[in-house]
């Protein structure tokens, strides 16, 4: 079941680089990361690639496969035909460090700008009570493995470095939504923050982020659109809104 497959892998650093051609054995059931590892072990010991879990859980192995932002460890080789040349390049939106490894510090900076969870006043640890139905909305967003593929694909920053300052990107818009929908978060200004500081207005709902998310988080429909509505509809009905925040009232 083993065959030889052709690959083009981008090699280089911040000063530039090229696609290099390799021919590597591929065995039944393998994922692209297996093949990259075989390449390291047999032909290119210094090929730089990030990975950790090899199980789609840590979000380290992000790259672009034939131009599509993907996790290397979840890209099955049987999704290609054996004759096909598979092209692997680093994420385009972030500065190159070396080969397939990029500098993703942009994301950590954006994470630090979002006000943290604000615990409810007067509720002791152990006394938090929330309904499963109410936590599920935020739980969807907490599935995020921070692979930053959505950040990579989003056209607002992909080819517009200058937008990076004003736009936090889909990963952090879902963080805003997550906190906003957290039944016990006591910060009432999440939507305003998303508008004023996270640049939610720059998103024009192309849904590319949702399409690449390996966790299948409905980034646009379940997070960005509701947040936009909250921003626009400044006079949203507080009862409907607070309904999700069982028992807790902000005044």
């Amino acid at each position: 079941m083993s065959y030889k497959s052709k690959f083009k892998v981008w090699r280089g650093d911040a000063d530039g680089g090229d696609l290099n051609d390799y021919t590597v054995d591929v065995n039944e059931g393998e994922v692209l990361l297996d093949v990259i590892h075989r390449l390291q072990a047999t032909q290119a010991p210094d090929l730089a690639v990030r990975w950790n879990c090899k199980a789609g859980k840590c979000g380290s192995c992000s790259a672009e496969v034939n131009g599509k932002p993907s996790l290397l460890c979840m890209t099955r080789m049987n999704t290609f035909v054996p004759e096909e040349t598979v092209t692997v390049t680093p994420m385009r939106t972030f500065p190159i460090i070396r080969d397939l490894v990029t500098d993703v510090s942009f994301n950590y900076e954006k994470a630090r700008q979002i006000p943290a969870f604000s615990p409810p006043k007067g509720v002791a640890p152990g006394d938090y009570r929330m309904k499963q139905l109410d936590v599920e909305r935020s739980q969807e967003f907490r599935k995020c493995i921070e692979c930053f593929l959505c950040q990579d694909v989003c056209h607002v920053v992909r080819d517009h470095d200058d937008n990076k300052k004003a736009f936090s990107g889909p990963r952090f818009l879902i963080r805003a939504a997550e906190l906003s929908m957290h039944p016990l978060d006591s910060n009432p200004d999440r939507a305003e923050f998303a508008r004023d500081e996270q640049g939610i207005g720059l998103c024009n709902i192309t849904k590319c982020c949702t399409e690449v998310c390996p966790e299948h988080i409905k980034i646009t429909d379940n997070a960005i659109i509701p947040m936009k509505e909250r921003v626009v509809d400044k006079k949203y009905d507080p009862l409907v809104w607070l309904g999700s925040k069982i028992g807790i009232h902000h005044d």
Partner: peptide, 9 residues
């Protein structure tokens, strides 16, 4: 939970 964790209920 006071740090923001959301466990199943």
């Amino acid at each position: 939970e006071t740090y923001g964790a959301l466990f199943d209920r």
